[in-house]
Simulated assay, not measured.
Amino acid sequence: MTRARADGLGPLAIEAHGLVKRFDGTLAVDGVDISVPEGAIYGILGPNGAGKTTTLRMLLGIIDPDEGVRRVFGNDRPHEVAKLIGYLPEERGLYPAMKCDEAIAFMGALRGLPLAEGKARGREMLENYGLGHAVDRQIRQLSKGMAQTVQLLGTLVHRPRLVVFDEPFSGLDAINQGKLESMIRNLASSGTTVIFSTHVIHHAERLCDEVAIIAGGKVPYAGSVDAARDRIPAQVRLETRRSDGAWRDALPADARHDAKAEGSHFWYFPVPDSGIEALLKRLIEGEAGILSLSIERAGLHDAFVEIAGAAAARALAEDNAQGEAR
């Protein structure tokens, strides 16, 4: 039975309360609370080692929490609804001697899909994904990116209601990352719930309805991407021809000044409580020489730094740099 959301906005695909996990006495996950609405694209965002994979495995029943409860479609024994779930782990692997359609069918069979049906669906999926030419190739004959795509299709072949990806963009080139983003959007538009973990902020910002930010095994924030960004006031970016005058009194005392080029001055500051209209009037009356004025909303990266702290943000940046180097 699917449980309804506490806020009354619809049913939950996954909910977890107070999840705790220790390994050899080391606390890996410390009191995680997560609620994922059905049909949402939900991101778990944090640096490597933050507890993302452990959290996903507890949510899916692969490992049990030491404390806390989790439910998948209302069931507190997630393995009992495993046929409704597709899971792509971070550490991937296929039998190298299998052909592509056989590998996809095999993964579907693990979720209860008859082999013959899985093979037929696999061929169709490979064709739709532009890999029809590789249907009869063995996995060992594929590039790394193609092999990852085959495993991705095997995750979806039984048409799950919930799909969980652990670092799905890792190792994919820009073209295949774009294809995966499109696939995730299409899954959600068809009503499938998608959860993915990532240490790459722009994937979460582009795709997710809601995110959980995880750092040091804790979740300091879980909610909409918009609400996370709104925790930081919008910034005014003002470009003027003049650098001084009576109009300067209209700017906040902590406005940052950046002279980009001769005859062009940039100012950065939060939107004043009195609003932008009063400020604009004083700038015009003072002949500041406005060249441009824009209000820039904070991005998810800025929100991550605000919520998780500078150390977690640095770790995230290091993970991204290492991923690009690979």
Rank of each mutant, 00 (worst) to 15 (best):
V200N: 12
G61C: 07
F73A: 03
K144E: 08
L27R: 15
G191I: 11
D230T: 06
A204L: 09
L293A: 03
R123G: 02
I175N: 06
V305E: 06
F304P: 11
L19S: 07
R314G: 01
I85S: 05
K21T: 01
D258M: 02
L316Y: 01
E80Q: 14
H158E: 00
K119G: 03
D249S: 12
L207C: 11
A222L: 02
G263Q: 04
A40C: 15
L280G: 11
A253T: 08
G86K: 00
A325T: 10
S189C: 05
A288K: 09
K218E: 12
L316P: 00
G323Y: 11
I34H: 06
R5E: 11
L59H: 09
R256M: 00
S243F: 07
T240W: 01
A103F: 03
E262K: 14
L251N: 00
V271F: 09
T192R: 08
E306M: 10
G86D: 02
P168G: 07
A103D: 12
R326N: 12
I214D: 09
E287W: 03
L60E: 08
V225E: 09
A134E: 08
V36F: 14
D244A: 09
L283C: 07
S189T: 10
A215N: 12
G145T: 04
G43W: 01
I195C: 10
D173S: 04
A325M: 12
L88P: 02
D319L: 02
I213G: 05
